[in-house]
C-alpha cells in the first residue's frame, strides 16, 4: 500500500537526539530539584554520582543546543534554498500559529462536548504547533538559565550574583513544566490517545498511510491533490526494521518518561 512521506531522516534523527538528551537531562537534573525525596540520592548513585550526573547533564545540554542549532539551520536552508523564499509564513505548511488554529481549538472543544464535528486539520495541528514552539520557549529559558549556572564565574562579570538565584528558579520550574508536559500531554496527544494507541510510529518511520492522511489531515490531502503534488509525497513502505527499531525506541522512552514522571510527582507532592 502506498505511503505518504511526512518526515525526512533529518527530522527523525533530530527527534531521536531530542528524546535521548531530554531523558538524560530530566534523569540527571531531577535528583537535584527533588534532593529531599528519598529516591533522589538513589538515582544520583545510579547515574554514577554527583559528578557523573553533572557530566551527563552537560553532555545532554550540548546535544540540546546542537539539535536546536541544527533545526534553525534546516529551517533557513529549507526556506532560502529549497523553497527559494517562496514560502507563506502564515500558510498551512508553516509552523506559525494563525487564525485557523484558534478556530480549530474552539471547534475541538465543541467536538469534545458533542456540540459539533471534529475540525479538519492541515499539515500541522494546533497541538503540534504548541509542542513545537514550547521547545523554542523551553530551550531558550532552560538553556540560557542553564548556561548561567554552568559558568557562574564568567556570567558574574556582567551580572549581579542574584541572577543565579533567578536562573535557578527559572531552570528548575521550566524543567518541571517541560518534563510534566512531555511525559503526559505530548505522550497522550501523539501516542496514547485512542486513535493512535499505543504509539504513532510516524516520527520514527517518517511515513503515514494514505488513509491516515485522508482521515487525520483531510485539508492537507485535498490541498496536495488540488496542487497535483500528492505524487511527490507517495513512497513505498518504510523498511520494517526501521519502523520496528523506532517503535522499540519509542516505547523505551515512553516508559522511562513515565518512571521519571512518577518520581517527579512524588517529589512535587509528597516530599
Amino acid at each position: 500500500m502506498a505511503e505518504i512521506k511526512r518526515f525526512n531522516a533529518y527530522h527523525r534523527w533530530l527527534h531521536v537526539a531530542m528524546a535521548v538528551s531530554f531523558i538524560g537531562l530530566v534523569a540527571s537534573g531531577m535528583p537535584l530539584k527533588y534532593a529531599n525525596a528519598p529516591w533522589a540520592a538513589w538515582l544520583m548513585r545510579f547515574l554514577g554520582g554527583y559528578y557523573a550526573a553533572g557530566l551527563i547533564h552537560r553532555i545532554c545540554a550540548v546535544i540540546t543546543f546542537g539539535y536546536f542549532a541544527a533545526h534553525i539551520g534546516y529551517v533557513i536552508y529549507d526556506i532560502a534554498i529549497v523553497r527559494k523564499f517562496r514560502f507563506n509564513i502564515l500558510g498551512p505548511e508553516s509552523m506559525v500559529p494563525w487564525l485557523k488554529d484558534l478556530e480549530d481549538i474552539y471547534h475541538s472543544f465543541r467536538w469534545f462536548f458533542g456540540m459539533g464535528p471534529r475540525p479538519q486539520f492541515d499539515r500541522f495541528t494546533y497541538w503540534e504547533k504548541f509542542d513545537y514552539w514550547a521547545v523554542f520557549w523551553g530551550v531558550g529559558m532552560i538553556g540560557v538559565s542553564g548556561l548561567f549556572l554552568w559558568f557562574p564565574e564568567f556570567f558574574g562579570r556582567f551580572m549581579p550574583g542574584w541572577a543565579f538565584n533567578i536562573a535557578t528558579v527559572i531552570h528548575s520550574d521550566e524543567a518541571l513544566l517541560a518534563a510534566g508536559f512531555i511525559f503526559t500531554i505530548h505522550y497522550f496527544n501523539t501516542h496514547l490517545r485512542p486513535e493512535k494507541f499505543p504509539m504513532d510510529p510516524v516520527i520514527f518511520s517518517g511515513r503515514l498511510t494514505l488513509h491516515e492522511l485522508q482521515h487525520d489531515r483531510p485539508l492537507e490531502y485535498r490541498r496536495l491533490v488540488d496542487e497535483n503534488r500528492l505524487e511527490q509525497y507517495l513512497t513505498g513502505p518504510q523498511q520494517t526494521w526501521i519502523t520496528d527499531a523506532g517503535i522499540l525506541f519509542g516505547f523505551a522512552i515512553v516508559l522511562i518518561g513515565f518512571f521519571l514522571l512518577i518520581l517527579i510527582v512524588m517529589g512535587q507532592f509528597i516530599y
Partner: peptide
Amino acid sequence: TFLFMTVLLLGTFAFFFTHTFLWAYR
C-alpha cells in the same frame, strides 16, 4: 519570577490537562 513561573505552570497544565481529558473522553 517565582510567581510568574508558578502561574505559567499552573496555566499551561490546567489548559492542557482539561484538553487532554475531554479529548480522551470524546
